[in-house]
Design a protein around this nucleic acid. Structure first.
Lengths: 234, 234
DNA sequence: CGCGCGTTTGAGTGGTCTCAATGTCCGTGG
DNA sequence: CCACGGACATTGAGACCACTCAAACGCGCG
């Protein structure tokens, strides 16, 4: 459907040898999900755990696509609290802005590789980029949808509903549909759901007591009652 | 900067005679904020108070721009609760979707006029619409930014912070920067902020006792300590 | 083995919700 | 002109859920 630059080569393929065993959040992205590259494709970047890809307020020169690992975008408030806007899994694109500056900071949650695509914002798209605009528009609409869903998640929901919704979303987005490998910490989850770390932990324990999930380890969630979870999060 | 169709005529001008006195939420939009029309401009539509412009799940054939009045987009949950995603003031555009269907319902809050622009989604933008894509991209990025801000507003903030942020946003978006004419009810505000109607009312009363605002009537807010409000909402 | 980090669990507090009653504004009709 | 009704908004009392502060637990690593 959408035109893609034939010169574009997927950096994900060159990554595969370096990662012998891959949990779901490390899966390489499918080639068809790679956006058409601005200019001559994109530049592959490595980002270490907790390292910053770009800062809130920094000049926006590129947008990004996750190859492997996990990226979080967040805002630091004046009272020191952090709010996470989104988690980006392999295949997801992020970093579009309508001004010339980023309005969130982006950090790697774990060992992460991303591809950077240079662009100068919506206003600077010339006629030569005509084929690119519809694809970027589609990505922007996806981003708006994700942000809307996040806002709906945060409004007037109980802790168990929020956690269930988070787990349901993670299942839907990962390859494996039974076991979720959480690359992010409890603090990350709490900052994403607008809860405290203790409440997240308590809620997960309660879900385990209710036999909706199992927690073989802190960062591994086995979903046992997928429909129950989905119903709880609705 | 951005190309606009010369054949496009602003329906807002034809509205002006019909509205002798205009509070801020009834202000007609500035011509430069009108997006380039898809096809041959747009179709002017009247929407009565609480009438539905489109329903959640309905086929998406147009996007819209508010000429006068106020539009809310919302979601009705299975427990009967309503969550409002956004309020759209004159000049704002809404109704973009990345699928073929709307994912929220749109309703007029009061007597409202909108312009409808036909389009068939990002995928259907042909070469003939090349000049349109960057403008739509810009609007989509605005929408994403708005949704992100809303999500940040809803996460881990006290009732007074939420209400202060709502009032601050309303001041920034309306023409008058001292008195806010609220076209929406307390219930609308509560559903937007993830609070109950009682908490919204109590919080407004408290802000009045703290002399940050005055409430000459229920739907009219005079801002007396703008910096204090802004600081509270940060 | 012991340290450190992340996570889990416990006890008590507080902010928002729920349920209920009262108050205010405005249009209608006597 | 005032009485009445209805919708919307405000205020009050009590309950509950998530937060805060604190301690204990489990795991990986030097």
């Amino acid at each position: 459907m959408s035109a893609t630059f034939s010169a574009f080569s997927d950096p994900a393929f060159s990554m595969r040898r370096a990662v012998p065993t891959r949990p779901s959040w490390m899966a390489t992205s499918a080639p068809e999900k790679i956006p058409a590259g601005a200019a001559s494709g994109g530049q592959l970047l490595h980002v270490a755990p907790d390292a910053e890809l770009y800062a809130d307020g920094a000049e926006s020169v590129s947008f990004y696509k996750v190859v492997s690992g996990l990226v979080r975008t967040c805002k630091f408030r004046s009272d020191g609290r952090r709010q996470i806007d989104a988690f980006y899994l392999p295949g997801d694109s992020f970093g579009f802005e309508d001004g010339g500056r980023h309005r969130l900071s982006a950090e790697a949650v774990c060992e992460t590789y991303v591809v950077a695509y240079r662009w100068r914002g919506a206003e600077a798209l010339s006629a030569g980029d005509a084929a690119l605009a519809p694809q970027l528009l589609s990505l922007a609409l996806q981003g708006m949808r994700r942000a809307q869903d996040h806002a709906l998640l945060l409004g007037r929901r109980s802790a168990s509903q929020k956690v269930a919704a988070f787990l349901t979303d993670m299942i839907d987005r990962s390859v494996n549909d039974e076991v979720i490998e959480l690359a992010m910490s409890r603090q990350d989850i709490a900052d994403y759901l607008g809860l405290t770390i203790e409440t997240v932990s308590r809620t997960l324990s309660q879900l385990e007591r209710d036999e909706m999930i199992a927690l073989p380890s802190a960062r591994r969630v086995r979903v046992q009652d997928r429909l129950g979870l989905r119903h709880l999060s609705s």
